[in-house]
Structure formats: structure tokens, C-alpha cells
Amino acid sequence: MTLSIDQYAHLSRWRERPVLEKALLAIGMLLLAVSLPPLPSAPCIIACVLGVTLLGARVPLQLWLRYALIPAGFLLTAGLTMLFDVGRHGLSLSPAGLPVVCGLLLRSFAGICCLLLFALTTPVTDILASLRAIGLPREIAEISLIMYRLVFLLLDTASAMHTAQAARLGHSNRRQQLRALGLLLANLFPRAMDRASRMENGLAARGWNGEFNVLRRTQPLSPTRLTWTSLLLGSVLLIGSLFS
């Protein structure tokens, strides 16, 4: 089974760090990347964030590459197309020119690094909980949480059914494949409803009263780490605005 980015986040060394700390660093750097001129701030940000991701949060390099290369590929192709103009006289170099495109690429890549730092250390459910803390209505947070859980269950069921269909040659040609998909979807719905009602029973057995109260395990905010984060952000801001 290949793990999703969210599953890695659950196993991350930084999982228990307060979301606020991680957000301050990652989103802070992202904002700097977007607002400062790309040189020299973007390379600075890339270096800092990559250092923190690989050395601080100890995300394995291979894993990081796997998730960084896909968007990086998109960026490159987008950059290449921006270099050229297709006009009346055929292909010509775009007036925007190389420096602008390079700046844009650097800046976007810095943004990707920031988002990956956040995504690889912070599971969706933690983000939901933090959003609740800053005012997302409880109902929406709880429904999202349950949906998040059910999506995985449903995916498991769907993939098991898919395998079972394949085993009985349900996908041997296009027509059958389409028919099998229809059957799968049609079966998924009653199963999902059945699952939901059993889940309701299971929750009721544990005294569910309509609210999903659970104990969260997060470390308290650390002034030391916050100071480091601010220093890092501050120096990037300084370098970025002084030497541009």
C-alpha cells in the first residue's frame, strides 16, 4: 500500500508540535516568498525551509523528492511555455524574458517547499481541530472529521470490491469495465449507509451525546521554538528587502 501524504504526516516527528508553530513557520515563509522580490529571497527561503524539513522534521529526502518533483515538473513546463510566444510570425521568444520567468519559477518553488513542510508534518485532522479553535463552527469541523474517516473506509471497501471484480474478469474489456464500475458504485451506497448506521450504534455504545469530544495530544507552544521561527522569518525578510 502506498501511503498518502497525510499518512506520512501522522507519522511525522513533528506531529505533536502545535499546529500554530508549524503554520507560523510554513505560512510565514510562504507569505515572504510571495511578497518579496524573488532574488535573493526565494533561494534563501528554499534553503531554510528545506533545511528545516529534512534536518529538523527529519522528513526522508526520498519522500520529499517524491512529493516535490510532481509540482516541480508542472512548474517547469509552465515556465517553458511562458518563455515563448506563439504569434503571427510563428514561435518567438516572449518579451517577458528569461529573468522574469526564472524569478517566477524560483518563487513558486519556494512556495511548494513551504507547503510541503506543512503538509508532511500536519495531518488534515489537526488542521481541522485548529480551525475549530479559531472559530470554524463545531458542526462543520465534526462533519469533516467523520467524512475524513469514512472516506478511508469507503476507499478500502471500493478497492476490495474492485479487486474482487477483477479477479472474476470483470474488467476484461471496456464495456465490462464500465458495467463493473456501475455495479461497484451502486453497491457502495447501501454499504456506506449500512456502515454509517453500525457506526452510530458503536458510538452510542460509548455514550455519544451528539458531540465528538476527544482529548487532543499536542505539546504546548514553546517560546524557544517560536523565537527561532521569528528569527528565521526576520532574517529572510531582512536579506530579501536589503539585497534585492
Partner: peptide, 12 residues
């Protein structure tokens, strides 16, 4: 699976 719903073992 009918019983576990929370984001983590501890929370559940």
C-alpha cells in the same frame, strides 16, 4: 472499523 472514528488512537 464500525467503532473507531477519531483521528488517532489516543483521541478515539
Amino acid at each position: 472499523d464500525d467503532q473507531l472514528f477519531a483521528a488517532s488512537v489516543f483521541e478515539d
